[in-house]
Nucleic acid binder design. Structure first.
Lengths: 191, 191
DNA sequence: TCTCCAGGAATGAACATTCATTCCATATTA
DNA sequence: TAATATGGAATGAATGTTCATTCCTGGAGA
């Protein structure tokens, strides 16, 4: 197994175990075992458990942005772009429930708070299609003139809530329901 | 200090510390110290840390329902009742940020998942104004005919998201913004 | 009124367990 | 053979829980 392969095995094992059992329910020894690696080996790839957790998050964030931007046409009307992002996000979460659950764990922890602060206030240099779209919609007076944070709450809040309930089996979400909820989110933010 | 007083001291200490540092960041020894009791004393009131966590949750849940039902008039139109519950919930969260943060911790943990399963599928005998209102609205064809879980996502998702951002200081939510977000939630669920 | 005692409540040091991290003998590679 | 990577036992810190001991209170007896 090559060096990157091993690294990926560790990340995958951490993803699976942390998604299921949480940060504190996934000891390094367990991650090592699932990855088929010695406990000490992890420390040759990641300085500490904290670093592992954060690098895994960055990996997932990059993946998700890639997935969502596929087939995203900047030229479309605001409403169409909004609905595209909604359904793309939901489809991604449903297809990769482990990743969704990991991201949930991350966001509902001190890591997530720090990350959120940076995202909202820091000069994050990388592009952020969600933010850009909202700003465009507000400028065009198509979307309610509310603080960005409120619009995010109205948009992302319902989607993650629904994704969680679907993944936990509390509701069976199909394409039709995804579409309906996406349109309801649009009703929430549009003027 | 009476027995119930001491019990309440322990619950309050647990609330404060767990809200701030999380379940795993609030050792029993720390909770005992803040409550002004010996470590062992906690176990005279609560069988284990798990039990303490769950009893505290039930306490908070009861308090919140009380708070929200105050001034809730069954006779009002669906839309008015909806807006009342929105703003009452937000006001409660803003007034008691510790309780909100505790509830967030709880819901984003295995405890919360179990609780949610029971709530949605169990024969919960106690009344549930949110659920009743949604069902009434759907029956009257005022609210979108979507699964209950989806309507909850559209309703509660944004409110908790906004409350979190407000409590963490990412946005300053005043009565006006509360009202606007409540109405946006209504736009999301209404037909 | 004062003294003493019984029984329950409170205590916190001690214990067993769990965890992240380190270390070094062994295996692998060049 | 030399250099590097690996595995997993060893380590020490931290945690939930226990339990032998101390403390407190309220009533009985003188």
């Amino acid at each position: 197994m090559s060096k990157t392969e091993k690294r990926n095995e560790i990340l995958q094992a951490a993803l699976e175990l942390i998604a299921e059992f949480g940060f504190h329910g996934a000891p390094m020894a367990m991650i090592a075992e699932r990855a088929g690696v010695g406990a000490g080996t992890i420390y040759r790839h990641f300085e500490s458990k904290d670093v592992l957790i954060q690098e895994l998050f960055r990996d997932l964030e990059a993946r998700i942005l890639d997935h969502i931007q596929a087939g995203y046409d900047e030229g479309l009307p605001v409403r169409e772009k909004f609905l595209h992002l909604c359904t793309a996000l939901l489809r991604y979460f449903f297809s990769f429930p482990l990743e969704f659950r990991y991201l949930e764990q991350f966001h509902n922890s001190p890591y997530g708070r720090d990350y959120r602060r940076d995202k909202l206030f820091g000069d994050s240099s990388n592009r952020h299609p969600f933010k850009e779209l909202l700003e465009q919609g507000v400028a065009l007076q198509i979307i309610k003139d509310l603080p960005l944070v409120a619009l995010f709450a109205l948009w992302i809040g319902p989607l993650t809530s629904l994704a969680r309930d679907n993944i936990f089996g509390f509701v069976q979400v199909d394409d039709m329901l995804s579409r309906q909820v996406a349109e309801a989110c649009w009703d929430a933010v549009r003027r």
